[in-house]
């Protein structure tokens, strides 16, 4: 019983470690050489156009924010970028896209009812989140099944012994 219990804990811990590794460990995925990119983003209540921008890791990105109807902001999660533009007065920001993944762009100036949900996305390639998610999901499904089946077999043995 104690051995099986230890084995269950071991499998659970191994599953957790592997799943976290799948989500976090940097992959040796190469990409095109960094370049400078200029992106014009039009903001209107409650949308960015384009809604999603794609850049590569290492790119020097310049965003030109143009507002079409009211004061709008653009803040990028995890990048500390925050600019405001009003109609007729664009705002610019330049930064290096040094983190890969998908990052939400959010309006940072109250602009109306749906303001908290005025959201766009910046995708920094190589975007491996889908592959990472798939791997982590498989690991957890198999690991959880292993832990539960071991527990159930212990309970079956216990029940049989009781009989």
């Amino acid at each position: 019983m104690a051995t099986r219990s230890r084995r269950r804990i071991l499998i659970a811990m191994l599953t957790a470690v592997l799943a976290m590794a799948a989500l976090l460990v940097p992959l040796p995925v190469g990409g095109p050489p960094p370049q400078s990119r200029a992106v014009l983003i039009e903001a209107r209540s409650f949308a960015y156009q384009p809604a999603t921008i794609h850049v590569n890791r290492g790119d020097r990105v310049t965003i030109d924010l143009m507002s079409l109807d009211a004061v709008h902001g653009l803040s990028i999660d995890g990048y500390g970028v925050n600019i405001n533009a009003e109609p007729g007065r664009n705002a610019q920001v330049t930064f290096v896209a040094d983190r890969e993944g998908k990052f939400k762009m959010r309006c940072s100036v109250t602009c109306g009812a749906l303001h908290p949900f005025m959201i766009g996305e910046m995708v920094v390639a190589p975007h491996t989140a889908v592959a990472r998610s798939l791997l982590a999901t498989l690991i957890v499904a198999v690991g959880a099944a292993g832990v539960v089946l071991l527990r159930l077999s212990t309970e079956n043995n216990h029940d049989n012994t009781a009989l």
Partner: peptide, 25 residues
Amino acid sequence: SGLVPLLQAIILLLGLAGAVSVVLH
């Protein structure tokens, strides 16, 4: 804001582990 996606993934995976447990039980 930089940490939220990872926290979301961890919570979703915990939910999956719970679901697997319920299915097998």
